[in-house]
Nucleic acid binder design. Structure first.
Lengths: 337, 337
DNA sequence: GGACAACTCTACAACGTTGGAAAGTTGAGC
DNA sequence: GCTCAACTTTCCAACGTTGTAGAGTTGTCC
């Protein structure tokens, strides 16, 4: 059995509660008493039992991060950022993969694990506004991603529309006139795809150009292979285009590969920009221009907000939009050097 | 406050212990009693308090996975596989990133979090044999990766040497004669780099070829940018070669980009094979031949072994080597179709 | 030197669960 | 109808920690 406070207390010649007080930085302890207790803790190698602490205090020091899929580079990088942000506050992160499935997200949100964590960061994918009532769980929660729900929940989002607008304007400013919106989800308004499409349209409007539905390319699932398949379809259809605003990086990379195989030069024949700024975009050939959604800011803000909510209930719901950044690289002929 | 067993017990008209017995599948319960209890659990939405259970039973249902870095695709995919394997046994996984730093690995291994988990899967990177005593922790542990320690610990490893041998033989059988060992760590014997180099040499030997030290390319850190930088160095040096056995996929991809920029055709001028079979290798241009180290098998075996060790102490240390698989793709001119 | 505040430490009772063992019930076998 | 085993439920204590309340100790100020 491991060392408990009782043994530390005996060794230091104090009560158990005093040991607890030392550990929890209770201010009224004589320096030499504190000293003695710390020495015993050190010597015995005492480590607090977090289950007991959790039971007694109601706090476990664990938060949950619900994401669709860790194999997706965007979410792996998000998870990394969240874990680093959480570590700064002494929190551990349990990652739950939802696969973006509605059923699975509900299962996680209402499963027994929620009782084990102090709060949840939930990157919504499977649920929609019609499920708003279902996400009303007792555990403190901060939503990541888009503002899908109107409920009284904290949101930390990226500027999807503004980002996509900047990406599109970037291509237009380079003289491209037939730019694909690559990765649309028909009829979606409020998700990433809908918001990014809105930004794309806004950029066209700002230049007095009209929106051509033929240039909107549907890519249902934003994986590399789907991007490749969709671009193959576009090439087969004979559609004329000279620019691509891909709604995320991996479908951009899938498309890039197909374009290159087909002999289209990037950026000469087709200028291509992605969204997410995943690490890989810095090392492809050509390097991929993209929109950095402000991942670090998202992670730090979300953890901070969650902690505030855990520590004091009754905070009115807040919203934070992280600052995005256009990252020009070779795929739009605008690499930094 | 959340629902507790007490309230379920009152609702069902039984004692708390009977509720506990129902939940834990104690066999001697009358069917109608069980029925009533389950109904009350359902109606009240009872969920067990895992802290309390953990305190009482000593088990938390959480295991820890220590890996260097989640942004590294290999480890992201490993984490995914481990989480799925763990979920099958009702376990949650806490991921701890060590950055491959010795200090940080020790900190994690001896930190208070270890008290919160039932066991650890530890992907060793920073520690070495000289630290063998330091990994003797009370928490059940299974080591992943290479057999770095000789201590009494379970190991689940990949066949580094055999895999690298097969990769090298693959290039040799295609007629390549000057094949780089790309990613060596000088003087290392027992780590991945050392073992893979041994496989490379074994393949040469098997064909009666002698080992040329000039063809061993040092890449200290196995990241994409380091692979790119190292390949730039090779090209600058004017070294003559027609094949590359890269010791992992991302340095292979970094090198591939540099080779393409320099106008070398793959596989015509240089045949290239990696190691790890990360998802991305299926979508690059050209697709990358690689060695699948048997990730699923590693994850499932590791979780199973850990669980066995958690459930019954005193098991003699075991070792398991997962089966590897050569995955021929376009970068060696051997794509399946 | 008395009152009061500020400090320092401790006893006790929880938190919600499960292990152990006892108490109570049923039914089969003779 | 009695015995004994098998079944069913309950009682009690404990897991290791912290909140509450209070006891004891100083020290300051009039």
């Amino acid at each position: 059995m491991a060392i408990t406070m009782r043994e530390v207390a005996v060794a230091a010649g104090v009560s158990i509660k005093t040991v607890s007080n030392v550990i929890n930085n209770y201010p009224y302890i004589r320096p030499d008493t504190r000293e003695r207790v710390l020495k015993s803790i050190e010597e015995l190698g005492y480590q607090p039992n977090l289950s007991a602490r959790g039971l007694r205090s109601g706090r476990t020091g664990v938060i949950s991060l619900i994401i669709p899929d860790l194999k997706n580079a965007y979410f792996a990088e998000l998870a990394d950022a969240v874990m680093r942000a959480a570590a700064k506050h002494g929190l551990v992160v349990i990652i739950e993969q939802s696969g973006g499935k509605r059923e699975r997200e509900l299962e996680i949100l209402h499963g027994p694990r929620m009782r084990m964590v102090d709060g949840v960061l939930y990157s919504v994918l499977g649920l929609g506004q019609e499920d708003a009532a279902l996400i009303e769980i007792p555990t403190p929660m901060v939503l990541l991603g888009e503002r899908i729900f109107n409920g009284p929940t904290d949101h930390v989002t990226m500027r999807n529309t503004e980002g996509a607008e900047a990406a599109t304007e970037h291509l237009l400013s380079l003289g491209r006139s037939r730019v694909l919106a690559f990765g649309t989800h028909p009829n979606e308004v409020i998700g990433s795809a809908g918001l990014r499409l809105a930004g794309y349209r806004r950029a066209l409007e700002a230049r007095g150009l009209s929106y051509d539905e033929a240039l909107a390319v549907n890519v249902q699932s934003w994986h590399r292979a789907d991007g490749a398949a969709a671009m193959r379809g576009v090439l087969d259809s004979g559609l004329d285009f000279d620019g691509v605003v891909a709604f995320n990086d991996v479908i951009a990379l899938g498309a890039m590969r197909v374009l290159q195989e087909a002999g289209r030069r990037i950026p000469e024949d087709v200028a291509l920009i992605g969204f997410d700024d995943i690490d890989e975009t810095r090392y492809t050939l050509p390097t991929l221009s993209t929109i950095d959604p402000g991942r670090e800011e998202i992670a730090e803000t979300a953890v901070r907000m969650l902690l505030e909510r855990i520590e004091s209930g009754g905070i009115p719901p807040r919203e934070h939009e992280a600052q995005f950044r256009l990252v020009p690289r070779e795929s739009t002929g605008t690499a930094a050097h």
